[in-house]
Design a protein around this nucleic acid. Structure first.
Lengths: 174, 174
DNA sequence: TGATATTGCTCAGTATGCTGATGATCAGTA
DNA sequence: TACTGATCATCAGCATACTGAGCAATATCA
């Protein structure tokens, strides 16, 4: 029988566990209280003001039912606001607040430090190869989970803000 | 600002998400209902009859508070039994049942197939390198999470059963 | 326009993972 | 033996993730 050490699934679970612990430790050390998931969502909202939750979920590969709670917590912390979108009252346009931007800038060093720490066992060359292989494996299996990564494909209808690039003209690709 | 694609933490979270989805899909396709976490625990109990929960947790790097629920579910499914250990009434000696062994044997092909599918984007050579890097990175950061991997180091005191290889004579190794 | 399909979001329920606390038991020692 | 500290296990509480269901609003097409 195969050993756990030969199971990519088991190894990845273990590394993910370490990655989360390192992230939380660094963020807390910097005086903040934000999970990896919340950080990724906050950064994505900052880069795409006015996104709706479904689109946001696709950008960072979260499940649509998970994103609700994550945004709830970001709103509760005052880092994000949900606004109604006049053109589509189903959607909630997400915007980062001043406090959110401030937090995002302030924790970036800790976030980057965390990435280095979790790879401390690898040389720079190995780390680069590791990430290349991860990206390649993920790309080939993206559609196998319920929450695949989705590129931004159309202009986001906001309530007035400038927004991320969108292109309805190529709506006919697979 | 760094992109998500440059963050090992984010990439690993995504791959882990895919790995779990693939595992569940293959297991369900084979007609069983077992999570990756439950499978690893079941396999570890099978290989180490009579282990207590803390030791089991160390063997597969689970948190001690998580293992309780996992074992609960395995017991509920009739795959594992908890027995009192006469020499230490704090501990619960875990044993796999007949049904557990049968299940374990029956799902092994699906488990191995799942490992192949999640790496389908990589060549054999890349897959091997990927796992080597994962193992190396994990080894260097093992102690950074609350639930580090712990090798089996002493004889398990059971309630009469034969037990995992144990050797008190070399108890003085690191 | 009216019926249907789709979309954005939320909720209930289940399964990890973690923090921190508690209870029961055991080991070592004064 | 009484005390102290360590160990095994569990629990409450919180944060992901997912399945599946349902609601409201929009889009589409006959």
């Amino acid at each position: 029988m195969k050993d756990n050490n030969d199971m990519p699934g088991h190894l990845v679970r273990r590394f993910q566990q370490i990655a989360v612990a390192v992230f939380l430790s660094e963020i807390e050390g910097a005086g903040f209280d934000l999970t990896p998931v919340q950080y990724a969502a906050l950064a994505a909202i900052s880069a795409n003001p006015g996104v709706d939750q479904i689109t946001l979920a696709g950008l960072i590969a979260y499940d649509r039912t998970t994103i609700t709670g994550v945004v709830d917590r970001l709103v509760q912390k005052g880092l994000v606001v949900r606004r109604a979108r006049p053109r589509d009252r189903r959607a909630r346009a997400l915007h980062i607040t001043e406090a959110g931007e401030t937090t995002l800038r302030a924790i970036t060093p800790a976030v980057e430090q965390a990435q280095r720490i979790m790879l401390r066992g690898l040389t720079d060359r190995e780390a680069a190869e590791f990430m290349r292989l991860l990206r390649k494996a993920i790309a080939a299996a993206n559609e196998l989970s319920r929450a695949p990564l989705r590129e931004l494909q159309q202009v986001i209808e906001t309530d007035g803000d400038a927004v991320a690039p969108r292109d309805d003209s190529d709506a006919n690709r697979s």
